[in-house]
């Protein structure tokens, strides 16, 4: 049986890689990709959590939560990508640092 701490380590490192991706990359697409990574890390934990839940009967809450996160990811990506298209149409580049008109 896989000790939970390993899974913790795995999801945690996946999450950190995702964060690095968000912070380091200046291309909007890559930010979305690393966002996906972070989502996967979280889902991993949910599933592991429900699997190791100390109750007598089998617990499937993790998987239900997975379904919800799945729909979330899907809708989020749909909107994200349409924004990317929109941005590309308007600015012809995807560099996020150039989008700072909201400041003044």
């Amino acid at each position: 049986m896989i000790p939970l701490s390993w899974i913790f380590f795995l999801s945690l490192s996946l999450f950190t890689i995702g964060i690095f991706g968000v912070l380091a990359r200046r291309n909007l697409l890559f930010i979305l990709i690393s966002l996906e990574l972070m989502l996967n890390a979280v889902v991993l934990l949910f599933i592991a959590g429900s699997r190791y839940h100390p109750t007598s009967i089998a617990n499937s809450d993790g998987q239900i939560m997975y379904i919800l996160i799945l729909t979330l990811a899907a809708s989020e990506i749909a909107i994200g990508l349409s924004l990317v298209i929109h941005m590309y149409r308007q600015h012809h580049h995807l560099d996020i640092d150039k989008l700072n008109q909201l400041r003044d």
Partner: peptide
């Protein structure tokens, strides 16, 4: 990741992962 789901006994989640996540969302990407 879906492989790990299988190992954890969440076969339905793994299947979904492959079909929806890897299949649909990544293709959209």
């Amino acid at each position: 990741v879906s492989m790990v789901f299988f190992l954890l006994g969440a076969s339905f989640a793994a299947a979904l992962q492959i079909i929806v996540y890897a299949g649909a969302i990544m293709v959209l990407f």
